[in-house]
């Protein structure tokens, strides 16, 4: 009678080595993305064409940039609600400081990224050192970013607000090499970097350790506060970076351009299988989530879905995935 369990145990041990639940979720997210393209091609021939896929991927890359930062903070059980206005501030700051001149571009980009890091620093310090709930402080800093953006740009009526993004930045995002837009190379680079940092560095291990059990990782010698602050700073920086690329893509900055990216970045992270309770998931999943979400919304727009429908779809997708993946284990 005691002999029977042995083979079962062996089988359980062998399967997860290849297909851990985390990897499975990432694969599912990519399959979902491909499925959306497949369905799109059937409903609208040409939806899956190279040109269309290229355009959708480029749009998804902006979500992917914001989602990179969001992935970091979600992995330690946090959330960043300040991204829409940090992004918007970034887009406006880069055009107003560069004034469309290539010579000023590098300084403008550095200044904008520093601005994002600054907002993230305040978020991170409050979360790590004062135990302020992430929702509260990031919402507050989002408000500060919004007010400062509106006030300093005089509601985007300032003389330099109509400036275009410098050609060199625009070329880096929209210019094509080997038929692929520069924005996608940027995204590929960030995806590789994120995967390397999270999967193969001490820093990455510490992120997962904190997400699984902050107290245990503190006792194991991880500087929990420092890592947390760095993660929120990176989230702010990625939001500002997305702002730069969006200004480059559209040519100019506008008010409210960051608004969709709160829901999109969180939906992308959730679809990608990153556990909202922290400690599980990876950036590849979030990239797949970004692609799935943008492809789905593009398809629905092609199906003549009105604007308001997009908001409902974002909410519905987040809820559906949460019900699949995000349920807390403890029975209430």
């Amino acid at each position: 009678m005691t002999v029977a369990p042995a083979p079962v145990k062996e089988r359980i041990r062998r399967v997860p080595e290849v297909l851990t639940p985390d990897r499975l979720r990432t694969i599912v997210a990519f399959v979902a993305a491909i499925a959306v393209f497949g369905i799109g091609e059937i409903l609208h021939p040409g939806f899956g064409s190279a040109e269309s896929v290229k355009a959708i991927l480029l749009t998804a890359s902006f979500v992917g940039f914001v989602a990179a930062g969001q992935t970091f903070v979600v992995l330690v059980g946090g959330i960043d609600l300040s991204v829409p206005w940090v992004l918007n501030a970034g887009a406006i700051l880069v055009v107003t400081t560069s004034l469309g001149q290539d010579g000023r571009a590098s300084w403008a980009v550095l200044l904008t990224l520093a601005m994002g890091l600054g907002f993230g620093l305040v978020n991170g310090l409050a979360v790590a050192f004062l135990a302020v709930p992430a929702v509260v402080i990031t919402l507050a800093m989002g408000g500060v970013a919004q007010g400062l953006t509106l006030g300093l740009s005089q509601g985007l009526t300032c003389s330099s607000c109509a400036s275009y993004a410098p050609p060199v930045i625009r070329h880096a995002v929209t210019g094509e090499a080997l038929g692929i837009p520069g924005g996608l190379f940027l995204w590929l680079g960030i995806a590789l970097l994120m995967t390397f940092v999270l999967g193969y560095t001490t820093f990455g291990r510490r992120v997962y350790a904190i997400g699984n059990n902050a107290e245990a990782s503190f006792l194991a010698g991880v500087n929990v506060r420092l890592v947390t602050v760095v993660l929120y700073m990176l989230s702010g920086m990625f939001a500002a970076f997305a702002g730069i690329t969006l200004a480059a893509y559209g040519g100019q900055a506008s008010l409210g351009m960051g608004d969709p990216y709160l829901f999109q970045s969180i939906a992308a992270v959730v679809i990608g299988g990153v556990s909202i309770l922290g400690g599980r998931g990876n950036y590849l999943g979030s990239t797949a989530g970004s692609i799935t979400l943008v492809a789905l919304v593009t398809l629905l727009l092609a199906e003549n879905m009105p604007d308001w429908g997009r908001d409902v779809v974002y909410g519905g997708v987040i809820l559906a995935i949460l019900l699949l993946y995000g349920r807390e284990k403890t029975a209430v």
Binding site: I79, L262, I276, W308, D311, V312, G315, I318, L319, G326
Partner: peptide, 26 residues
Amino acid sequence: LIAFGRLQPILVTLATLSIYSGLAIK
């Protein structure tokens, strides 16, 4: 959704915020 779905209040209400706002625009 929060009590019976055992989901995080922040995410559920963020999702329903999107849905209710969308319906209001409709």
